[in-house]
């Protein structure tokens, strides 16, 4: 049968769900071992962060697509969590091989790393489901006439998990390296996110990039950094 956009989306969703059937909702034995090898075991912090972010995600998803669809948001979040664990394990295996160390305490206790990785996994899930399918130009109005968000496209996820785009940028390449089965369309989507960040979002006034540029060049050269407007 001819390929249609809906058929293509269905195939991608089935593939993603299929790839993640063997990944659990909890860290695998291997991943749990990486956690245990840490000077400070990050497990409790990981679980607690996921709980907080699941609430934020479900709430914002419900606001965007209607309270009756909250269950869909929960399903997507759960798929995102499976992908997050799967990619984290692959990244750590690759780092263990590269650095010949098994204690990743600093990285695994870095909240920004976890939030970035989870945001990337959720973005992959949202893009696979067609994050744009709910897009109606930005805002709809609810029964009371108040605006409700309907655009779940990137960078929506950054706002939901409260993550600077600059930090999200850091995980993209390693994420693609760690998951060779990502479809061509998804890789292209992540590349589009990367370009958006590099060209626009990372240069917004509140970006951590400016502070890093200042540190890199020393305090005296700080005034040489161009303003976001430039």
């Amino acid at each position: 049968p001819p390929q249609t956009p809906i058929r293509a989306a269905m195939t991608s969703i089935q593939q993603l769900r299929g790839d993640l059937t063997s990944s659990g909702d909890q860290p695998s034995t291997n991943l749990a071992t990486y956690f245990k090898n840490c000077t400070v075991d990050p497990m409790q912090a990981v679980l607690s962060r996921l709980e907080t972010l699941e609430q934020a995600f479900s709430q914002r998803f419900g606001l965007a697509v209607g309270p009756r669809c909250i269950v869909l948001g929960c399903q997507r979040f759960k798929l995102g969590v499976r992908l997050y664990y799967k990619i984290m394990e692959a990244m750590l295996k690759s780092e263990e091989k590269r650095l010949s160390v098994q204690n990743f305490s600093k990285l695994l206790n870095d909240s920004t790393f976890h939030t970035s990785l989870l945001a990337c996994a959720l973005e992959v899930v949202m893009a696979t489901y067609g994050g744009g399918s709910f897009k109606t130009g930005g805002y709809n109005h609810d029964a009371a006439g108040d605006p409700v968000e309907t655009d779940l496209c990137f960078p929506w996820i950054l706002d939901v998990v409260d993550l600077p785009a600059f930090d999200f940028y850091k995980v993209i390449e390693s994420f693609i390296k760690a998951e060779p089965t990502l479809s061509k369309d998804i890789v292209k989507h992540l590349e589009t996110c990367e370009n958006l960040i590099m060209e626009r979002i990372a240069w917004r006034t509140d970006s951590p990039l400016f502070e890093l540029l200042k540190q890199e060049h020393g305090g005296g050269a700080a005034d040489q950094v161009e303003t976001p407007a430039s």
Binding site: E95, R98, K106, K184, L190
Partner: peptide, 21 residues
């Protein structure tokens, strides 16, 4: 396969990107 351009060198990884090595 895809056309993504990998920019990280072999000696760079996620640990360096988050300043954790």
């Amino acid at each position: 396969s895809h056309d993504y351009h990998f920019g990280l060198e072999d000696h760079e990884g996620i640990s360096e990107l988050f300043d954790c090595d």
